[in-house]
Write a protein that binds this DNA or RNA. Structure first.
Lengths: 213, 213
DNA sequence: CAGAATAACTAACAGTGGAAGTTTTATGGA
DNA sequence: TCCATAAAACTTCCACTGTTAGTTATTCTG
């Protein structure tokens, strides 16, 4: 086929199909040829739209992060806002577990990730956090949220009781974890989020007390 | 070359060389042929020692986690022990940033990771935490530590000030982050760790208060 | 001392990301 | 209206990947 009457593809279409393929088959199975086939086209045609496979994946990551709700930042009190944002952030990644490894490598030059970092940092500074502390909080929240989305904790334990016998005396019930991994992961996330925010709240009050004196 | 007088390789040697290669060239560049070449051997010979590339990487992950210090667990007070363990855990991964993605996917069947989970869980239960709470704490600590090791927060911001102009008003200083990424990441980790442990300490006291009444 | 197991090898497979060059179409300027 | 150019698909090709199959020579075992 030579040049068709009209463009057969679009950036948005390619990204959407890539997300669908990665969701269903995993990141390791994802290739440019399979993506092209799913779009009804041959492999190299994709290079008319993206220069490299990496750029396609970058656009995918950008798309996912763009769906994180950041509207509460700067509006609700900082700790409440941080809690809601963290939940939305985690939920967005949990919808696409296969591409969390992509999302975990940082803002890079992705607009949506930079916009999110900007909103978080701005909300914290406006709330009275010193700038260096606000930077730390942005970082540590990302650590926690991406860590919690990256891989299931509960689901990664072997379901076979034999594994634990004798060798790991405290893990005698661990083989039951896989059955409830969703609740365990969610519970751990919520417990960690509450602990983190409680600790930060105390630090905030200590800093305010110092300022006033 | 036919069968040599003596085995040319060993599991330990293969794993050590794999770690060296991944540290220097990255996970994406790592291939069985390159590993074999570094060992003075042709590609398929590795399959006399490991059934798949994945098993080699699994052995690599096991080796790294085996170096995490867990000796304080069950000896020091639980919160102190958790702090020291988390630092050692993070330090072990930070020495090999290129293979953190491997380590992040959970205990699987790796002996060293299961031993670590066993020690953490045991220490918490012995300290009086309810078992389901101890499970959550083990999970959320792993979330935070792997998240903090997975990718530099500070180092992932573009160093080019142009990127931030106008679009991201609060990030006007973000281009300076890359220069100090080590301190920023370390500071964020320590701040998060302290906040997390402070929050958990409060929760612990609340639970103890309930028990006594 | 015969034969089995071992540990290296070469050759080959299907699949990968990507580059080069080809062909046809749409479009903008004279 | 005609033509040059750029666009967007194509085919072909390359080096590389993980892995399997089959070969060969050596060592170990009965």
């Amino acid at each position: 086929m030579a040049r068709p009457p009209r463009r057969l593809l679009s950036h948005g279409q390619i990204v959407a199909t890539a997300i669908r393929l990665i969701d269903s088959d995993g990141l390791a199975e994802f290739s440019t040829r399979k993506l092209a086939a799913a779009l009804g086209v041959r492999g190299p045609s994709l290079y008319n739209y993206f220069a490299t496979k990496e750029q396609i994946l970058d656009a995918v990551a950008n798309e996912i992060i763009a769906k994180v709700d950041i509207s509460m930042l700067g509006i609700e009190p900082w700790a409440d806002a941080l809690r809601s944002w963290a939940r939305s952030y985690r939920a967005s990644m949990a919808e696409h577990p296969n591409l969390v490894p992509l999302l975990a490598v940082g803002p890079a030059r992705r607009p949506s990730a930079l916009a999110m970092a900007d909103a978080v940092f701005g909300a914290l500074v406006d709330a009275g956090w010193p700038r260096n502390r606000a930077t730390h909080i942005g970082a540590l929240m990302r650590y926690f949220v991406t860590g919690s989305a990256l891989a299931s904790f509960a689901g990664s334990f072997p379901a076979d009781p034999e594994v634990y016998a004798d060798r790991y005396p405290h893990l005698d019930q661990a083989h039951l974890l896989t059955a409830h991994w969703r609740e365990v992961d969610e519970g751990a996330f919520e417990m960690g989020l509450s602990a983190l925010l409680e600790g930060l709240q105390h630090e905030y009050e200590r800093i305010r007390a110092c300022r006033k004196s």
